[in-house]
């Protein structure tokens, strides 16, 4: 059993990588805030239930068999989160639908969520350290 197999850890890792992807999408929106015809995008929100199901050892989880331990396997977690077009409330005359205020709110929200995830991650680590019998930080 390695670290990523701990459900809590893998969930947090999944969450962090989702937030990372979201930051990516949001920065595309902000950069294209003046591009004519650009429509704002956002990631589809994470589903807690599927996250729970996805993190545990699933009987349907199939990976490629390798003949050697050193072979690079196909990892179960992919960074492909689906995004969809989410036009902001206002649309300018050139067809651009990015509202900078809206995007700024989303960016700071993502940052706060990421902060929460990293704090939880380090908390989980210190809990493990406690279980190991060493004093926490």
């Amino acid at each position: 059993m390695n670290m990523p197999d701990v459900p809590l850890m893998s969930m947090l890792r999944e969450r962090m990588s989702w937030l990372e992807s979201r930051q990516n999408v949001l920065s595309q929106n902000v950069a294209n805030a003046d591009t004519p015809g650009f429509i704002a995008r956002d990631l589809v929100p994470q589903d807690f239930e599927s996250l729970l199901k996805g993190s545990g050892p699933s009987p349907f989880h199939i990976t490629l068999a390798g003949s050697d331990a050193h072979h690079i396997g196909v990892t179960s977690s992919t960074n492909d989160y689906s995004s969809r077009e989410t036009p902001d409330v206002e649309q300018s005359l050139n067809g651009n639908s990015v509202s900078l205020e809206q995007e700024m709110i989303k960016v700071s929200d993502t940052q706060a969520q990421f902060q929460a995830a990293t704090n939880l991650y380090s908390k989980a680590l210190s809990m493990m350290r406690t279980a190991l019998g060493k004093s926490g930080p």
Binding site: V30, L100, F114
Partner: peptide
Amino acid sequence: QRSYEADLTVMDSTKSMLARTIDL
């Protein structure tokens, strides 16, 4: 100027997220 500031904010926020990860 407004768009430039918005881009800078995104950069700042990304940087702090990166720093948080390294802080782990």
